[in-house]
Design a protein around this nucleic acid. Sequence first.
DNA 1: GCCATAAGATACGGCGCGTTTCCTGCTTCC
DNA 2: GGAAGCAGGAAACGCGCCGTATCTTATGGC
Lengths: 202, 202
Amino acid sequence: MRKPVEQGKPVRRRGDELERAILDAVWGELVEHGYDRLTMDGVAARARTSKPVLYRRWPNRPALVIAALGRNAPDFQEPPDTGELRADMLLFMRSLLHRFDDLPGEAVHAFLVDLLRDPELRARFTGSLTSDGPVNTLETMLRRAAGRGEINPGRITPRVVSLPLDLLRDAFLTGGTVAPDRVVEEILDEVVLPLLRAPSEG
Amino acid sequence: MRKPVEQGKPVRRRGDELERAILDAVWGELVEHGYDRLTMDGVAARARTSKPVLYRRWPNRPALVIAALGRNAPDFQEPPDTGELRADMLLFMRSLLHRFDDLPGEAVHAFLVDLLRDPELRARFTGSLTSDGPVNTLETMLRRAAGRGEINPGRITPRVVSLPLDLLRDAFLTGGTVAPDRVVEEILDEVVLPLLRAPSEG
DNA sequence: GCCATAAGATACGGCGCGTTTCCTGCTTCC
DNA sequence: GGAAGCAGGAAACGCGCCGTATCTTATGGC
């Protein structure tokens, strides 16, 4: 709801209330202008606060946006378990891709690209995938499938586990937009699943 | 006796000579400062010219750097043909990775990341891979290998052909540095080659 | 030798980051 | 309940760099 009076009462917010207002403002700016044109001044204005307040909490622009994404993104869900690997993976990959559908895809792309520029953020990002992230979920799904005899357990290596992720990310980065379903299925049916099913050699 | 003919004779260069000097200056700046800190002023100064001269030839910073890379990068070579696919691919992938070894790897990374930001440049980049680029070379190698019976010809699809490229690029982007040999071999031995050798299903 | 052309020097406007300075209202602690 | 101090808020600044505009001056074609 809207504040009753515009300039009547300069209500001074603090702590968590202020922080929530700021992160909401970030989200709003992302939706409206995208990441490229999200400015610190813009966020401050939208949150009706000022830049020093932002910089007291976050060291720079990407850190601020990370915080906003972390707050607003839906949590990871449990690994799907349909009883069939292909369906599991399809569900899972799609849920990954559509995690930020509330934002213009171009905004997410610009943000990820910006993340990659900074070594520190880059490391944090890749780390977030493995430690308790999607990689674990994938591994769970693969082990279950191996238990059912759907795939060759010998093929399950770290590189192969993260392969779907790597390909989705690459498609997103080079394509500029979330991979369409066609591409996801292609990745699964032409690369990931055949590889997992391939018998060991030698 | 106003002019004691100092070190700088005001030789005014034009056309191709000037252009070469500029692109060399770009290269020098890349080597010395990396892409992030390559500035138009810096290039102009190093080339002993001025910014308007740069902007008369190239519309912006990335375009200028593209021109410099195009001039200084070694040409693509013929696809290797050792008689064995793994060796061919190893040679080829390594040659790709070390194409810009004269530059600090961080500079190449920053440049590629910057390319991805602009839809136009992004498209030009991905296009350069397929049309008469590395993708063609890879396909040639794969077809030869299929002819020798090394791999399953049914596995050769566009997505699979570009798979090694995609994985190298992703490793470069997310790793921040050229993939070490270990990773290249892992990609080949755990993903690409097993997939190519896998028998058709159904 | 004349003149169009492009090089070179310089300065400017713009933008956005991150910081500084100063003021002011809220909260806490005695 | 009052003072001290903490944190929010507003404005302005310096910086760096982009891309452009203006003007002078050398150069090469004719």
